[in-house]
Amino acid sequence: MKILFIILSSLFIFLSCDTEEQIYHYNKYDDEYAGLVLMAAQECIEENDIFAALDTTNDFDTAEFKVNDVYKITRVADSITNIFFMKITAIATGTPDTMTVVLNGDGSEYDKIINFDSDLNSDMYDNIGLAACNITYKDIWSASGLGSSEQMTLVWDKETIQIADDAGAGDDDDDDDPEAYTEQTDSFRINRDYPLFFSYFNATYSSTILTDGSDSTVNKTGEMTISLIVDTDDDGNYEDEDECTGNVNCSFVTTGFDDCDIAVDTNIVTKSDYTDLFFSYVANTGDCKLIPEFGTI
């Protein structure tokens, strides 16, 4: 026992010889700071597997998604479930690659023909990289699952103050809170298996609203999930066609709807108004309404 004590003592002393320290070269007041923020973001994008995986969506010819793939969107809000289907009806390679997607809600006002291209997908990819990796936007955006090669989660915290503190009808309170505001958190599940704008349809949404003169807030939640129900392989063969029987026919109508282009704001990472969207529609024909995050439809 005595010898054991001596040997253990010596061993622990020996192990204590290694040291590791961490130092900081700069602070936010240094000229180098801005460049280092960009370097950190660049390294984050280069080293995390998810960005290489998502980069595959920028080439429509080799991406996981194919023409005739059909996706089911399940929307739950106000305890009501709505089902939509999206079908990739065309992909054309070029500069940029283009795609047409038909969103069919079985006659709803959200049935649309959506035009998308690889440049827009690339802009969304850049937005996701900045939002997840650039600390400049850390108060608005956060991310998890960056080490995954399948899917990541991107959270967007938005807040809009409609009436500042000590203004409007509720200006007699003693707190420092705004008299009316809307907070909204969008949590997108971004997956390499579909075009990046599909992430809007695979997300959870929550909102807290305080109206002027009210003492209590109103909370709203909404969720959309997306699943692949018809998977087309490289030979054009379908799988999982069972989902397309019954009331839902995957050979649904794909013409006659409003024709909408996707628009991507390349400066979206700086924005945090609750009305800001991950992407928006630009109508070519008709009224291009996006499926709303909240409320009964």
Binding site: F14, C17, Y24, H25, N27, K28
Partner: peptide, 16 residues
């Protein structure tokens, strides 16, 4: 045997 490591972070809030 001694092993000393020093990691020079860009700044306190920059993970680089």
């Amino acid at each position: 045997k001694s092993l000393d490591k020093s990691i020079g972070k860009a700044a306190e809030d920059i993970d680089y």
